[in-house]
């Protein structure tokens, strides 16, 4: 399984990567913004994408629309602060699969992986 973490926060990417490794996900791709993520996805598609919303260069929603052109089915889970939960409705309308509130716990990340991959990790 290949998981991509998209966040402009290096700390968040590092925490997510460490948590995913602890959950048994060995192949973790990282991107600091939506544009970088899109480039990586074209060359090396992930099975699941966890993406921040507010990022420089290309935000999560714009990236999502581009990803959906390439692959309508890949699960894209938005990582959002409490304050942006209101945007979730808009995000779901745009094609986001699910959301995860920052700061996430290992259990919440595991729950989303199990839900979208279909098997516990």
């Amino acid at each position: 399984m290949k998981v991509m973490v998209v966040d402009d926060s290096e700390m968040t990417r590092m925490i997510a990567k460490k948590t995913l490794k602890n959950l048994g996900v060995s192949d973790v791709l990282e991107a600091a913004d939506g544009a970088i993520a899109l480039g990586i996805f074209k060359e090396n598609p992930a099975d699941v994408i966890f993406s921040d919303w507010n990022m420089p260069n290309m935000d999560g929603l714009t990236m999502l629309k581009e990803i959906r052109q390439l692959n309508p089915n890949v699960p894209v889970i938005m990582i959002t602060t409490e304050g942006s939960k209101g945007k979730v409705v808009q995000a779901i309308q745009e094609g986001v699969s699910d959301y995860l509130v920052k700061p996430f716990t290992p259990a919440s990340l595991q729950e989303k992986l199990a839900k979208w991959i279909g098997v516990p990790v």
Partner: peptide, 25 residues
């Protein structure tokens, strides 16, 4: 970066408590 992320989540949580208002961060 860590301080930025802390500011991001704290400001996000606080603004969520002012639910009747639209605050963009």
């Amino acid at each position: 970066d860590s301080l930025n992320e802390l500011a991001n989540v704290i400001a996000g949580y606080a603004k969520d408590r002012l639910i009747e208002d639209d605050i963009k961060l």
